[in-house]
């Protein structure tokens, strides 16, 4: 460990250069950034659990050093990345639906109700 500098606070240093205004609303900007960090951390916990399961399956008992030193073979690593992709697809569902709706514009449900009623 490096003691001379506060590596936790320095890790998150702000890069020089004014940040663009993406969302037009400061609170939404804050919430999205925090949400994305949280989404990443859930993925990290999920992967750690996967590591524990695999190690337990293979060895019956494990140490924390086993977890830190774990390096999946290529196929296992890709299997874990497929889990992340699937996880992302669940998180991103609202955006993906919007994308599909943009590709194929649809009538509102009121319009469909009208059509089928009259």
């Amino acid at each position: 460990m490096t003691d001379a500098i506060d590596w936790i606070s320095r890790s998150g240093a702000k890069p020089k250069g004014r940040r663009p205004d993406f969302l037009g609303n400061t609170n939404e900007e804050r919430m999205l950034s925090m949400l994305m960090a949280l989404v990443a951390e859930v993925s990290v916990v999920r992967e750690r659990l996967d590591t524990v399961e695999r190690l337990l399956e293979a060895k019956g008992t494990i140490s924390r050093a086993d977890i830190e030193g774990y390096a999946p073979d290529l196929e296992t690593g890709k299997e874990r990345n497929r889990i992340i992709r699937e996880y992302l697809a669940r998180i991103m569902r609202p955006l993906q639906h919007e994308l599909e709706a943009t590709a194929n514009p649809e009538p509102t449900i009121d319009e469909v109700v009208d059509e089928l009623t009259h």
Partner: peptide, 17 residues
Amino acid sequence: KHDEAARFNFLANLNRY
């Protein structure tokens, strides 16, 4: 560390997504 690698895995997949 395990979790740092997992974070990079997440980010690589996020960028692709």
